[in-house]
């Protein structure tokens, strides 16, 4: 018990920065007792969120999502594949999540970040189970050809709530996706050059016009930290490193629960705490939905 008491006494004499580094938990708890966080947010408030569409010119669909300083760049490239025998009229979506060494001092080249495979698995589970994408829509020629959708998400700056930002960028990239125009030539799918669109009649057009994917229920998520009786929405990486119990709730746009993660942690949550998290997520979904809509309509005006 010596240490916490000692810190109590020291806190009045010590500089704030030094106190923050030496006794991070105590520093945060002081704030929490006043219902405020060191970055001047209230406990249930998420950070500023922005989406910009079409950030990568060489991709078929892309988006940059920022939550606070956490930045995710998602890009989609479409390729053609032969569908598997079990699902001859379905395309396929492959999701990769990367944390390059630029994003955080903890990641070194050659040693992939611990968090990356966890987030990647959560992402592909969430996107496939939310029913956002109808795989049948990705079919080109039944049993012969279908779209293989490669979604790559890069974390450019890691500052907490990685999954939330990654999912938001993925969803935005899908709503930005334009399926390219292709035609069938000798049993092989080829790109239809813009200028030849009309004259080339001997080739059988498979996908005549650039089209968008129709998205089903769009999943949105919110990560919260549970610490004692406090619930902190949208944590920064500093908060994540000090208080370790995280709950991530994913709801779709009609407020149905898609998934809920609570990967262990020191705090055992009461059902009431989980319900509070879900309630916070419900509010957040509304916010995120609006931000996404605005980003999409912003694109259409241009």
């Amino acid at each position: 018990m010596g240490l916490p008491n000692a810190s109590e006494d020291l806190s009045s004499e010590m500089e704030v920065d030094a106190f923050r580094r030496l006794f991070p938990l105590r520093y945060f708890e002081r704030h929490l007792a006043e219902s405020i966080r060191p970055d001047a947010r209230s406990l249930s408030r998420a950070r500023n969120t922005t989406i910009s569409m079409g950030a990568v010119a060489s991709a078929d669909g892309s988006a940059l999502a920022k939550i606070g300083s956490t930045t995710m760049l998602a890009a989609i490239k479409m390729e053609v594949m032969t569908p598997s025998l079990e699902s001859p009229d379905e395309g396929c979506v492959s999701i990769d999540f990367h944390m390059p060494p630029i994003c955080s001092p903890l990641v070194r080249p050659g040693r992939p970040a611990e968090a990356a495979p966890v987030v990647a698995k959560q992402l592909s589970d969430t996107i496939s189970s939310s029913g956002m994408i109808n795989l049948k829509e990705l079919s080109l020629v039944g049993g012969k050809a279908a779209w293989m959708v490669y979604l790559d998400i890069y974390c450019l700056d890691a500052d907490g709530a990685l999954f939330d930002a990654a999912l938001l960028s993925a969803v935005a990239a899908f709503s930005n996706l334009q399926i390219p125009t292709v035609s069938l030539d000798d049993g092989k799918i080829v790109m239809l050059p813009e200028e030849q669109k009309e004259e080339n009649s001997e080739k059988e057009p498979v996908n005549k016009e650039k089209r968008k994917l129709t998205l089903g229920g769009i999943p949105f998520s919110l990560t919260c930290i549970l610490h004692k009786n406090y619930i902190l929405a949208d944590p920064t990486s500093e908060e994540e490193s000090i208080m370790e119990t995280l709950v991530t709730v994913v709801l779709d746009s009609s407020n149905q629960l898609v998934s809920l993660y609570k990967p262990g942690g020191a705090v055992l949550a009461y059902t009431s705490a989980v319900q509070d998290c879900i309630a916070l997520t419900r509010q957040r979904v509304k916010e995120l939905h609006q931000i996404l809509e605005e980003a999409i309509s912003g694109m259409e005006i241009d």
Binding site: M81, S84, C92, S128, S129, P193
Partner: peptide, 21 residues
């Protein structure tokens, strides 16, 4: 069962390249 993302990634795919090029 429903894991389209990882099971088929090894499958050969190709970009639909403009044949005139």
């Amino acid at each position: 069962a429903a894991k389209p993302s990882t099971t088929t990634t090894a499958k050969a795919t190709y970009s639909p390249i403009d044949p005139t090029r």
